[in-house]
């Protein structure tokens, strides 16, 4: 399962990386935008996150192993943090090999000017920030259901809405609301970071959202005691 996700993600990400290369042949384009500016790449990221997080609690709930886990002498918070850390590390493992694309690009295009590492670095920064936030959301959704399919679909829809909030904005009235949605929309953040522009606001936004959903997951697991 893990290897399938990893391989599938790298194939899709590779295709998405090649596309702007071919399209913009001979033109000037930001190096970071090659990978992090492509919508296909982000859809693959969102799908990968949904697939990584879907079994976290749903599968344990279905098979009953959750009962074994939660009656061991560990706190619910420890269980949740453990699962979160596991998913996050796997997400890093899945996404880091994409760095090879840039290295390969440099190797096969010797005529190219020296690679500008800054947009690449900031690109990964926003990728992992978004990952850490969306994985927390996916984990939360997984803690609510015993069906992995429901968890995956629920997570994918939730993080897609969050990611494409600036599109959602078009359907809502009010300048203030629209501005707020644009501020929260990941597509905006991604475009900035892919050009090497670092803004601290999204960093705080994603990290605080991640903390919130980790906390919400703990509460969702504890809820068994009150139902």
């Amino acid at each position: 399962m893990a290897y399938v996700i990893m391989a599938a993600f790298l194939v899709v990400a590779g295709l998405s990386f090649c596309r702007p290369l071919v399209q913009h042949l001979g033109e000037r384009i930001g190096i970071g935008e090659l990978l992090f500016g492509a919508p296909y790449f982000w859809v693959a990221v969102l799908a990968a996150i949904a697939l990584i997080t879907m079994p976290l609690f749903a599968e344990e709930r279905r098979t009953g192993t959750l009962e074994m886990l939660l009656t061991a002498p560990v706190t619910d918070l420890q269980v949740v943090l453990g699962k979160y850390a596991g998913a996050l590390i796997f997400f890093l493992l899945v996404t880091t090999p994409t760095a090879a694309y840039f290295i390969l690009l440099k190797a096969v295009a010797p005529g190219m000017a020296a690679l500008d590492w800054m947009p690449i670095f900031t690109g990964y920064l926003i990728l992992w920030l978004i990952g850490s936030c969306f994985i927390a959301i996916g984990m939360f959704v997984s803690a609510l259901t015993r069906s992995q399919v429901v968890a995956a679909v629920g997570c994918f829809v939730a993080v897609s809405i969050l990611f494409f909030l600036d599109t959602v904005r078009l359907f809502l009235p009010g300048a203030a609301v629209q501005a707020a949605l644009t501020y929260m929309s990941s597509t905006q953040h991604v475009q900035d970071f892919a050009r090497g522009v670092v803004d601290t606001r999204p960093i705080v936004f994603y990290l605080s959202l991640a903390v919130f959903f980790v906390f919400a997951t703990v509460k969702a697991i504890e809820a068994r005691q009150w139902k």
């Binding site: 098979t63 009953g64 192993t65 009962e67 074994m68 009656t71």
Partner: peptide
């Protein structure tokens, strides 16, 4: 604790 059906 050994739950019902021994989940593993």
């Amino acid at each position: 604790y050994l739950p019902e059906n021994a989940p593993l």
